[in-house]
């Protein structure tokens, strides 16, 4: 049977997590169809048609679908789902928000945030902040699944030539929820979930102002800036910086943890990084147990040095 993947996009561009989800779908096996549901999003549908491995693009266009409001999007997905064996979406705040409603509409369980595909009905998903891996089998006729992007390589954004088919966008503009604007983070740096390098600060940074030291280094490395939950709780930075069990799950080529002790819930969000470096003045900090390269140092001395050192060889 075919597999329906729900594309994440902003009506202008396809979000990268979609590509990882397409890969997970391909591993399940079967034709992969990509649903682009939005408003005035024909450009996204065209981009979706070029994704390698996509057999067909379904384009649903309606004003009610502009902002991905769960109450409006879920019925469109649920109606289409009847023809599929699997429905997949990225395990981002977009996918997590509406997919459980699709599961309810189909009266099936949802399998959240899979990290591997064992077979068409068996999947591995992290539980307890990734401190255990559960292998779960679904007996439901339609499997509703969200996909952890970091554990699947992205499908190639170019190379495919799928047909684009217009589908019923429904008329379910609900009257209970009104979208009242987006406050996008004014962040000129790469996004955390797609950055090749991330430098994150923890409670050891001592203030939000001190994050400027990380930003300076991030700009030299074209890196994203992240934070531990402790730094978010302390009010140093907004929540969308947060890496961890309850924040973003990342797996960059290089993760630099600065003034982060390495609590279980933070490690859950970054331990799949290819290389981990850390700077912490407490040599007993658990972060050293996962770091490939650890420096025991006062970050307020080490960061300016690091900034200078990067200038040297660049």
């Amino acid at each position: 049977m075919s597999i329906l993947v729900i594309a994440e996009h902003d009506n202008a561009e396809l979000k990268p997590a979609t590509l990882n989800t397409v890969t997970a779908a391909a591993q399940i096996g079967g034709d992969v169809h990509l649903l682009v549901a939005g408003h005035n999003c024909a450009a996204v549908a065209e981009a979706a048609a070029k994704v390698a491995g996509v057999a067909k693009v379904l384009h649903a266009d309606a004003p009610a679908l502009e902002h991905g409001v769960a109450e409006n999007l879920a019925p469109v997905v649920a109606r289409l789902a009847a023809d599929y064996g699997h429905v997949l979406a990225p395990a981002t705040t977009f996918g997590k928000n509406f997919m459980p409603r699709v599961a309810v509409a189909l009266d099936v369980a949802q399998i959240s945030e899979i990290s591997a595909v064992e077979s068409a009905d068996t999947f591995i998903r992290p539980i307890y902040a990734g401190n255990a891996l559960a292998t779960v089998q679904s007996k439901d006729a339609i499997k509703v699944i969200t996909v952890r992007g970091t554990t699947f390589e992205p499908a190639a954004a170019e190379g495919g030539s799928a047909a684009v088919e217009t589908v019923d966008a429904g008329s379910e503009a609900n009257d209970k929820v009104t979208f009242a604007g987006l406050e996008e983070s004014s962040n000129e740096r790469p996004e955390l979930t797609t950055a090749r390098i991330i430098i994150s600060g923890g409670r050891g940074m001592q203030s939000g102002d001190n994050f400027a030291m990380l930003e300076e280094i991030a700009d030299k490395l074209n890196a994203a800036v992240g934070a531990s939950r402790a730094a978010v709780d302390a009010g140093y930075v907004p929540n969308d910086y947060q890496v961890g069990q309850t924040g973003k799950i990342v797996a960059p080529d290089l993760y630099i943890a600065v003034g982060i002790s390495g609590a279980i819930q933070h490690l859950a969000g970054m331990k799949d990084s290819k290389v981990i470096a850390c700077i912490n003045k407490d040599e007993e900090a658990p972060i050293f147990q996962v770091a490939d390269f650890g420096l025991v140092a006062d970050l307020f001395q080490a960061l300016p040095e690091l900034s200078k050192e990067l200038d040297k060889g660049a």
Binding site: V108, A109, I111, T122, P126, I127, G130, N131, A132, L133, A134, T135, V136, Q137, S138, K139, D140, K271, I276, A277, I279, E283, F288, Q289, V290, A291, D292, F293, G294, L295, V296, A297, A302, E305, L306, E309
Partner: peptide, 25 residues
């Protein structure tokens, strides 16, 4: 609705080395 076939520990990440200076890092 789901059957948990097994629960395992994730692969352990081996700790690395400590470096002495920013330059070495």
């Amino acid at each position: 609705r789901l059957v948990t076939l097994k629960v395992t520990e994730p692969p352990k990440r081996a700790g690395g080395v400590k470096v002495e200076s920013v330059a070495e890092l």
